[in-house]
């Protein structure tokens, strides 16, 4: 059983306070949507959860089977996808996935990766360099990367950005799968994406609301 526990989290950049006093906990099969106006700290909070930024105050604890996981172990449990995330443009989509799998200690055969590309709507484009991809195709490829390790905790920043209708359908499936597998946290201001959460954290009011 996995759980994510946030205690009294605060982040400042220099003298500018982004947020403070964030507390919540999520258990398996729970999902949280973080909302708030631009600059409220949604992406910053996700980056702290992903281990990309250190909080100024507070703790992020990840427990798997009642054991607190350290930074190295967390990397295996968490995946993060965001429009800010850049893949290697000079490599092909297949090379990107092969590298990202190998470096995480995962061993995929090219056929398996090609199948994943097909399922993500990138059939026949695996051998193309990522620099020739549209922003929507890159977004699909980022989801493939994020799902390589079948994460216990999936963090998505503005998940629907750059996606067309089939892409949004793919996102629906990814989110449905993740809700069965573990924890989902996503940051968005898109009203259509709020439905993905069981809980909503509004960083403007620093309060929770629950979707029944």
């Amino acid at each position: 059983m996995i759980s994510l526990e946030i205690k009294n989290l605060a982040k400042s950049f220099g003298f500018r306070k982004v947020f403070e006093g964030i507390n919540f906990s999520l258990g398996e099969k729970e999902s949280l949507v973080i909302t708030g106006k631009n600059g409220s700290g949604k992406s910053t909070l996700l980056k702290i959860l992903a281990g990309l930024l250190r909080p100024s105050k507070g703790e992020v604890n990840i427990n798997l089977d009642s054991q607190i996981k350290n930074r190295g172990e967390r990397r295996k449990l968490i995946s993060f996808a965001s429009p800010d995330l850049s893949l290697y443009d000079e490599l092909t989509a297949l090379e990107n996935l092969e590298f990202l799998a190998k470096v995480q200690g995962l061993d995929f055969k090219p056929d398996e990766l090609n199948k994943k590309l097909d399922e993500a709507g990138l059939k026949g484009r695996g051998e193309d360099q990522v620099l020739s991809y549209s922003s929507g195709m890159k977004q699909r490829l980022k989801y493939l990367f994020a799902l390589l390790n079948e994460p216990k905790i999936l963090l998505l920043d503005e998940p629907g950005s750059n996606l067309d209708e089939p892409g949004l359908f793919l996102l629906d499936n990814i989110i449905a799968e993740q809700k069965k597998r573990g924890i989902l946290v996503l940051a968005t201001n898109d009203k259509r994406e709020i439905k993905y959460g069981d809980k909503i954290l509004n960083l403007d009011q620093q309060g929770f609301s629950f979707i029944s």
Partner: peptide, 27 residues
């Protein structure tokens, strides 16, 4: 999910090969 078989050295070599491949294409 793919099998978990990589050792530390194979991860390092994956990083090296990625940079090497990238360098050959971008110089």
């Amino acid at each position: 999910m793919g099998t978990k078989s990589s050792t530390w050295t194979s991860r390092v070599s994956a990083l090296f090969l990625k940079d090497f491949k990238s360098e050959l294409r971008t110089r």
